[in-house]
Design a protein around this nucleic acid. Structure first.
Lengths: 229, 229
DNA sequence: TAATTTATTGAATATTTATTGAATAATTTA
DNA sequence: TAAATTATTCAATAAATATTCAATAAATTA
């Protein structure tokens, strides 16, 4: 029995629906409409892999295709051009971040737990989401966004949402009495700066224990600032 | 009269010696040994220009050569390969940063002035060194450093020096009584995190006044943390 | 089942790429 | 001045690039 088609599939949906991919790999029949989205996701994942290793400058359609075991021409059946793939990749990367840093927070209820989780994920955790290494793909996109209007807009929209959500969260925590900050908007800006600065730092040091100490210190700094206006 | 040849010219020297370049543009005769270094600097400056616009992926020898008005083959006379140009470019970028953020500090004497200058340059100033826009070239190099051992090492060395110098500076300021921090090393780490986070933020917002407020807030945060252990 | 749309392959292509080597001009060294 | 080194230009090249097109297979729709 074919599962009903998803109305509008973005990466948000697909990333969390590994069931589809499983069926794909088990060679079970998949409706075309879903196949399209699975293929696009598959392409993005391997694009990510290749960019992480070679950067945009070393990422060719041939390499991506080979990584999937797919005919290079097929890539251009799902993405009209390499340019479109790159823009799509920015969406993909941003989606991953948004899912990890925002959507997870929504699950927790207890204010104190929320605060702890928030600060720990943002400041105490090291490096990158899934892997231990820094995510070159992300910084490639960020660098691109500096001159690429479309990609820049995507980043600005994302960080706009990010900051807004953080501000709201801080206001809630304020209300709940677990922090005490007079300006949640400024404080959320500080958190993002600390967060991105911390991730940046991950790649420019090889002293793991010193870096761990620094993150602990950043956490304390955040608590100090948040607990007193 | 030909000026005597510089013993060992790195970018550090050349960047601050525009006199040589002036003579170059006035078509005055220049000794070969100096020409070599001027040419290499010239190539790096135009490489920077092109990378800032197109990223590494769009930067070709042809474009760089055209930007200078130089024969493409001549590029490879001064840099053996494109790879060597890219590695040289990382040096060039790091040199610029080091000159701007470290060497300038050494000029000032009065402790209070030094503190002000330090925090203002690191946290209050917006965006990038010379231009108003973020420096794509810098982030291209940073992204490259994630997978490129040589470039990574250059970045680590630089930030190692940066942090060490900051720590020393904070200890001096501590001694002079203008700040009061129990761990200058951790505090210097915090400053770098704030600094890089702030620069990162420049490109992901279009609200100039809000960004200015945030930088002012970061400055205050830094003073608060530095003035009390 | 028939018609139509989508998926996939493979070959072909025009352009661009970094790099090389030969030849000439200019400059330095002896 | 003569010899040697360096700067510069130009033409050539081999490899790789994204993209296109035609052909076939599979799935959807009618």
């Amino acid at each position: 029995m074919p599962s009903e088609p998803l109305k509008k599939i973005g990466f948000e949906v697909l990333i969390n629906s590994m069931a589809l991919k499983d069926r794909f790999f088990k060679k079970e029949p998949i409706p075309l409409k879903q196949l399209k989205d699975i293929r696009k996701l598959e392409i993005m994942e391997h694009f990510h892999k290749v960019v992480n290793e070679y950067g945009f400058s070393g990422t060719t359609l041939a390499k991506v295709a080979k990584s999937i075991g797919m005919n290079p021409s097929l890539l251009l059946h799902y993405y009209k051009s390499k340019e479109e793939m790159i823009v799509g990749f920015s969406d993909f990367i941003i989606c991953k971040y948004e899912d990890f840093y925002l959507n997870r927070l929504k699950a927790l209820k207890n204010p104190k737990k929320r605060l702890e989780y928030l600060i720990d994920t943002l400041l105490l955790e090291s490096g990158n989401i899934e892997e231990l290494v820094s995510d070159r793909g992300f910084y490639e996109c960020y660098a691109l966004s500096i001159t690429h209007p479309k990609v820049k807009e995507k980043f600005r929209q994302f960080y706009g949402r990010f900051r807004k959500a953080l501000t709201q969260e801080l206001e809630d925590l304020n209300e709940a009495g677990v922090i005490n900050t007079s300006d949640a908007d400024l404080a959320s800006g500080l958190l993002i700066v600390l967060f991105e600065g911390k991730d940046f730092y991950a790649n420019i040091t090889d002293d793991d224990t010193s870096y761990a100490q620094l993150r602990k210190y950043l956490k304390n700094v955040a608590y100090r600032i948040l607990s007193d206006s």
